[in-house]
């Protein structure tokens, strides 16, 4: 069955002024039962696109370094920054960056969250510890998103010093997940 909508109930122009606005808004809310397909028509569709992204110059090199067990950044002599993640141009100076710089595999938790949801909003059985890690050797405030491990939820704090936990060399593929997670580098 097709459900008819609520019907338009607009007044003539004279009624609009001086009333509480928006007056009598249009639109027909669906109930959960209607949505589940019992009372209105649906057309369901599923698609699958497949992409193959080349990793590019800067991130390609960054991933190559991760495979070798190190983190690299890119320096800009225009603003004297060490950019992590690296890019081949500086967006502020708008010039090519200059050199590859080995930075450290340690850093500081800039901010963190304990995630109880997956990316489709479903609940996780085990929460995931996520953080932005400022990387030692990069310019202040430069870091990237990663996971935390070997730590209890209550122990995690902003400012916590951490070190990369690398996958064994033979398991690394040139991916951000070549680092399994970051773990505390000092006694908590």
């Amino acid at each position: 069955m097709g459900r008819s909508h609520a019907g338009r109930n607009r007044g003539d122009y004279g009624e609009v002024m001086g009333m509480e606005n928006p007056s009598e808004p249009q639109g027909t809310a669906l109930t959960p039962d209607e949505w589940r397909g019992k009372e209105i028509f649906f057309r369901n569709f599923h698609t699958k696109f497949t992409y193959s992204w080349d990793t590019g110059v800067a991130i390609g090199h960054f991933l190559e370094a991760l495979k070798a067990g190190k983190i690299v950044g890119r320096s800009c002599s225009g603003c004297n920054r060490v950019l992590v993640p690296p890019r081949m141009f500086c967006e502020l100076c708008f010039r090519p960056t200059d050199d590859w710089i080995d930075v450290l595999d340690t850093g500081v938790v800039n901010t963190f969250s304990i995630s109880y949801v997956n990316n489709d909003a479903s609940r996780r059985e085990q929460p995931l510890f996520v953080a932005v890690i400022n990387i030692d050797g990069a310019s202040p405030g430069m870091g990237f998103l990663h996971l935390l491990g070997e730590v209890d939820a209550e122990q995690i704090h902003v400012g916590m010093k951490v070190r990369a936990k690398w996958k064994p060399a033979h398991e690394r593929t040139g991916a951000i997940t070549d680092i399994s997670y970051f773990k505390p580098s000092e006694e908590l």
């Binding site: 992409y51 992204w53 991130i59 901010t111 963190f112 969250s113 990316n119 996520v130 991916a175 951000i176």
Partner: peptide, 21 residues
């Protein structure tokens, strides 16, 4: 697609990270 999606990122993460900061 290289640095964040492989970690299982959701939009809710970035809000929670910003709120914490």
């Amino acid at each position: 697609q290289f640095l964040e999606r492989p970690l299982g990122v959701t939009l809710l993460w970035i809000f929670s990270l910003e709120m914490r900061r």
